[in-house]
Design a protein around this nucleic acid. Sequence first.
DNA 1: CTCTTGCTAGAACGCTTGTTCTAGTGCTAT
DNA 2: ATAGCACTAGAACAAGCGTTCTAGCAAGAG
Lengths: 194, 194
Amino acid sequence: MMASRKRGAARDRILAAADELFYYDGIAATGIDAVVDRANVALGSMYNHFESKDALVVAYLQRRDQQWRATWESTIADCVTPYERILAIYDALERWVSERGAEQGCAHVAALVQLPPNHPGVSVAYRHKAYIRDRLTELVRDGGYSRPGEIAGDLTVLYEGLLANMLVTQQPSAVAGARRMAAARLAGRAASAV
Amino acid sequence: MMASRKRGAARDRILAAADELFYYDGIAATGIDAVVDRANVALGSMYNHFESKDALVVAYLQRRDQQWRATWESTIADCVTPYERILAIYDALERWVSERGAEQGCAHVAALVQLPPNHPGVSVAYRHKAYIRDRLTELVRDGGYSRPGEIAGDLTVLYEGLLANMLVTQQPSAVAGARRMAAARLAGRAASAV
DNA sequence: CTCTTGCTAGAACGCTTGTTCTAGTGCTAT
DNA sequence: ATAGCACTAGAACAAGCGTTCTAGCAAGAG
C-alpha cells in the first residue's frame, strides 16, 4: 500500500483535458470520449477516478474555483492599502487572462447556462459567485467604506461585465476602463443620488 | 392565394415555445420534441416551417434581437436629452426585465456559450452585440462626448454585467447601481487617468 | 518470481436526439 | 361539393451519448 506508483497521474491529465474541452467547447458539447482521447487515458481509467461525467464536471468547476481564488488572494496579498486590495480583483483578472486566457468568459456562468438546475455543478457555480461577492464585501468593509454590500454589488457587476465582454469581444481590452469605473465608485462620486 | 387562413399561426406558437424553452432550459438541452409538445404542434409542422433545429435557433435569436431593439428604441424615443438617451439602455433593461424577466441573463451570450463556433446562430449573436455597441457609440457621440468609443465600451461592460448578474443572483436589483456608475462615467469623473 | 493493482483497448448496452416518412383529417377557396 | 393545403399522429432510422463490462498488460511490493 502507501503511495504506490505515480498514483493520480492519469487523474491530473483527465482534469487538465476536461478543463480545456469543457471551457472552450462547452460542457454538454464535449463527450467523455473526447476527454479520454485528449488525456491519453483509457475510458475505464476515467470511470475509476470519477464516478460519472457529472462528477467530472463538478471537479472541473471546483478546480477552476480554487485556481481563481489562489490568483486573486495572491494579488490581494501584494497590495499595501485597503483601497488597492479592493481593486485587486481587476488586476487579478488581468493577470489571469494574460496567463490563461478567458475567451469564453466565466466558466461558472457558462455552467449556469449549460447545466440543468438539479445538476450538482450548479451549486458549485453559485457558491463560487457567492464567495466572490462575500470576499469583495469584506474587502470593502475593511476599507472603511459605508454600505459595503452596495459597493461590492456594483463592483461585482463590473467584474461580471468584464468576463461577459471578453466572451463577446474576444479580447480583454475593457479591464482598464472597468477598473477606473470601480475606482470612481469607491471615490463616492457615484454613490450620491443620481 | 392571398392571405389564406391563419397562415403561420402554428409558426408563431412554435417560436413562442422555442423562446421559452431555449431561454430557460438551454438550447442544447431542449429537444425538438419538447418544443413541438409545448407548441401543441405536430412534428411535421415544425419541419414545414423550419428547415432544421439550427434554423429554429437562428429564428429564436433573431426574434429576441428584434424585440430588444424595439423596446430599447422605444425607450430612447421617450427621452428628451441626449444624456437621457444614452442612459436609456438601463431603463430599457429594467422595463424588459419587469415585463419578461431575465433570470437566465442574455440569450445571445448564452448562445455563444452553448453553440459550436460554426453554428449559424453564433453570427446572429455577434451581430446583436455589435449592434448594441454601435448604437451606444452613436448615442454617446450625439451627446457631444469625446472618445465616444471608449465611453460606449465602458457602458457596454456595465450592461453586460447587469445581465450576467441577473443570471447569478436571480434578481434585477443591481440596475440602479449600474445606471449611477454609467452616469458617473458620463460626468467624466472616471475618464481622467487613474 | 508472483501477486496485486492501476492501466489499456475496445466491444456492447440502452437511451436520447434530429430527421424523414407515411397516412389520415379538416378547413378554405373556388 | 370538391380539390388543395396545412395540419395531425406516430412510426422508423441513423447517429451520438454516457455507462458498463471483459480481457490483457506492465510494474512495484511481498
